[in-house]
């Protein structure tokens, strides 16, 4: 599903974020990515959605090499991925419903299905009663859940989350992890970057550890 071969990423200022990464994530797998801040977790996730491009090496998603993907092909790659951003990236001039609607509009979904899709996604994250609310009126945990609803509404095959439990208390964090597990159970490949060790204590899923741009064994 996701393959990295000898992938390195050096930023224009000379900083080496990732150094010679080899990685294989199977379809339907759930994987945690851990490490200190600055270890390259975000960079690795961004490479999968081609938000950043590798300096060298090969990245394949569904056997498609995306390192050399043309700019015009990028949107279609990103539609296969649900991305939960560390800084949420919500639209503050649109309400909850309209925020979740955006991915469906972007991929030209049929009008009749749109409303039920949006409500199903909001229901899954427990925000159905707040569909008319503006994001500014939501709590941190609710914003995080809104972000998740937007990431899964178009039913992507890959779900990527960058620090999804960042500033949440333990209870909220556990709720959100349960959501990811349930998405994984219906076949979605899930990749979660976190520095929160408490999340990983009793997990049976694979844990990848990044240290200074390298994967630790």
């Amino acid at each position: 599903m996701i393959t990295f071969k000898n992938v390195s990423k050096r930023y224009p200022d000379g900083y080496m974020a990732l150094n010679n990464i080899d990685l294989e994530v199977a379809a339907g797998e759930m994987v945690f990515l851990t490490g200190h801040s600055g270890a390259g977790k975000s960079t690795l996730l961004k490479l999968i959605a081609a938000i950043e491009r590798p300096t060298s090496g090969m990245i394949a998603i569904n056997e498609q090499n995306i390192a050399q993907l043309k700019l015009s092909a990028l949107p279609y790659l990103r539609r296969k991925i649900g991305f939960i951003f560390q800084d949420h990236k919500l639209l503050f001039d649109r309400n909850v419903y309209e925020n979740v609607l955006l991915p469906l509009q972007i991929s030209h979904f049929d009008n009749k299905m749109i409303a039920s899709r949006v409500r199903a996604a909001l229901d899954k994250v427990g925000l159905l009663k707040k569909e008319k609310a503006m994001p500014i009126a939501l709590s941190g945990g609710e914003r995080q859940r809104l972000c998740i609803a937007r990431a899964v509404v178009h039913r992507p095959s890959i779900l990527i989350a960058d620090e999804p439990t960042g500033n949440l208390d333990v209870e909220y964090a556990r709720d959100i992890m349960a959501m990811f597990t349930s998405f994984n159970q219906v076949g979605v490949t899930v990749l979660i970057a976190t520095h929160d060790a408490s999340l990983l204590e009793d997990t049976q899923h694979r844990i990848l550890s990044l240290k200074q741009g390298k994967l630790a064994a």
Binding site: I51, L102, I106
Partner: peptide, 16 residues
């Protein structure tokens, strides 16, 4: 700017 950036991130084409 934000709206454009977010739209691009979640797969909007240039024409969209």
């Amino acid at each position: 700017r934000d709206e454009i950036e977010i739209s691009k991130l979640i797969g909007a084409t240039d024409s969209f």
